[in-house]
């Protein structure tokens, strides 16, 4: 057990600089209590990966990260035999009998543990982060099922490795591919959306403490208005913080048409979004 209560989660995550909403804190608490993996979805830039890092810091645990990409496979995710070393071992011991050599080269020494196996072995606390799970192929999901439901990995030559201490598992997904129902069932589901105004103000204050408080409030309100528009890519928390930093660097005291117009590119990444937002915010009046 890492946490006593939901409030304890909020307070300790805040201590590492991660301001969690009520939903995030509750779900993290449950994931710890029920010992289930946490599947985090949400738009880019709302702090999905950061959450795992923050939990690791709070728990004083080692963060083991598996970055998924198209074509990631067993030997990248689970374990691999160190072939080169095995060959060396064989040629070093020429006068050995076959039995001695065989039992020897499939030992721990020649095993290269990859993130999933690393997270399961050993007694120290760990946080396993499986990032961008949706990028991996469907076959890898099958691999994850065994690991995530029983926290064990089967290596044919060594036998089954079962976790003596369950890692805290966080999976993130951008929903570019629908994850399989089987995987979802094994996880607690958490959607991190855009934070409400108050929380976002607090985040900006934390990340850009030098920005004037009134300006911070204005920044958050404008971003909120942009999110309500039908845009191709609405600004995320990361963009809000970037914008706040930009305004600080420019030395802007208040928001006005010119400042917003010049810096809108920090928030919006498509030209037609910029056009539409300018029209809605009456920026062309100047």
């Amino acid at each position: 057990m890492l946490f006593h209560s939901v409030d304890d989660v909020s307070a300790r995550l805040a201590g590492t600089g991660y301001l969690a909403s009520r939903a995030v804190a509750t779900t993290v608490f449950l994931a710890d209590r029920l010992g289930k993996p946490l599947l985090v979805e949400g738009p880019a830039g709302v702090g999905k990966t950061e959450l795992a890092k923050a939990v690791a810091e709070v728990a004083g645990a080692r963060l083991v990260r598996l970055q998924c990409y198209e074509g990631v496979d067993e030997s990248r995710a689970l374990y691999e035999w160190n072939h080169a070393k095995q060959l060396l071992r064989i040629s070093a011991g020429r006068d050995e009998t076959w039995d001695e050599a065989r039992t020897d080269i499939f030992g721990e020494e020649f095993l290269l543990p990859r993130p999933l196996l690393t997270a399961i072995r050993g007694d120290d606390p760990k946080v396993l982060l499986i990032d961008e799970t949706d990028k991996a192929d469907v076959e890898v999901e099958g691999l994850l099922l065994e690991v995530l439901s029983d926290f064990q990995v089967t290596v044919p030559e060594l036998g089954t490795v079962t976790a003596t201490r369950r890692p805290f598992v966080v999976l993130t997904s951008n929903a570019s591919r629908e994850l399989s129902e089987a995987l979802r069932r094994r996880c607690l589901f958490l959607h991190i959306g855009f934070p409400d105004e108050e929380l976002e103000r607090a985040i900006v204050r934390l990340k850009v403490p030098d920005l004037d408080a009134a300006l911070t409030a204005s920044v958050v309100r404008v971003v909120g208005a942009l999110r309500a528009m039908e845009l191709r890519k609405v600004p995320s928390v990361a963009e809000t913080v970037d914008w706040a930093r930009t305004l600080l660097a420019l030395g802007a005291g208040t928001l006005d048409e010119t400042v917003v117009k010049d810096t809108l590119g920090v928030l919006l990444k498509h030209q037609d979004d910029v056009l539409r937002a300018s029209a809605k915010l009456d920026l062309d009046a100047v």
């Binding site: 009520r22 509750t26 779900t27 449950l30 929903a175 069932r185 958490l190 959607h191």
Partner: peptide
């Protein structure tokens, strides 16, 4: 989840049930 969270905090309960029962947003 209900057991761990208790019934006192309704919003926490809501999030807890959503986390365990739902699979997508």
């Amino acid at each position: 989840a209900v057991d761990a969270l208790g019934l006192a905090d309704r919003e926490a309960l809501r999030e807890g049930l959503a986390a365990t029962l739902l699979h997508s947003q």
